[in-house]
Design a protein around this nucleic acid. Sequence first.
DNA 1: CACTAAATCATAATCATTACTATTTAGTTT
DNA 2: AAACTAAATAGTAATGATTATGATTTAGTG
Lengths: 147, 147
Amino acid sequence: MEATLEQAVSILRRNQLKITKQRHALLDYLVTYQDHYVAISAVDEHMRTLFAGMSHNTIYRNIKEFETLGLLEVKSADNQTLVKYQCDFEHQHHHHFVCSNCGRVIELQACPLDAYEAQLPGCTITGHRMEIYGLCDQCTAKGVQAN
Amino acid sequence: MEATLEQAVSILRRNQLKITKQRHALLDYLVTYQDHYVAISAVDEHMRTLFAGMSHNTIYRNIKEFETLGLLEVKSADNQTLVKYQCDFEHQHHHHFVCSNCGRVIELQACPLDAYEAQLPGCTITGHRMEIYGLCDQCTAKGVQAN
DNA sequence: CACTAAATCATAATCATTACTATTTAGTTT
DNA sequence: AAACTAAATAGTAATGATTATGATTTAGTG
């Protein structure tokens, strides 16, 4: 399901965020890349060609705000932060296949690994990585709060 | 299985890398953190207290060399690069549980997700992420080489 | 139209990482 | 054991992503 710019804007509105022309253009850009991770620095560069003199701060801050709204998925890779617009607002459990050539992201539905291959016809799988996050037994026993 | 400093040194030797006192100390440090990811910048800081005036370059370059030897596992997170000594030289397929409080890493053996929980008694699971890498169908069809 | 909190701009700082070149050193050879 | 040489390191500075700060502007409201 593709998300539209209007949906994104209404989510800002629903959260009492002002619809500035900068935010509007930023969303417009992000929405067109729903199936690719984009480096924040590339977004930054693009926005500053659209709005000469736009502040780095504005771009980075808005991206962070969009992330807390659940509009964006963020991941770190290779000294850069990558973002991808996500329409899955219910944070439904799923994983990604990421093309190491063009960066295209294909969403996967099931969880056990073997089943994934069937969802990727024609693709070449070269590797995968999974990490589970939480508190280890020692930290859990200490009563540390999960964040 | 814990790896020893001697094993690490012999791997350098086997690859015709010189055993400098800097590399020796670096390995010594990394080997003591086999079950934690450590930020390279923290390694850098530590090494420079051991060797006043040690070059950033030296630390970063050696860590990269150790990675290509398969001695280290590297991942990006939050504008930092994290490393972990790994004894698994055959690159045996496995995943990690990472404590979000202390950073401790617990190696997991099986793959389907549900089975993992049984391997983490006493732990609090707050989330997980998996990504499969490769070439998408379009890039595969184009004949792009996997890297 | 005025108001005000929120957002942005402009500038500079910070932090991780990398580049570059002169100097040093590990491991080998004589 | 001294000499040799490629490899490694030191020292210095640059780069690039991201964040901080304080003054100015603006979206949304009354």
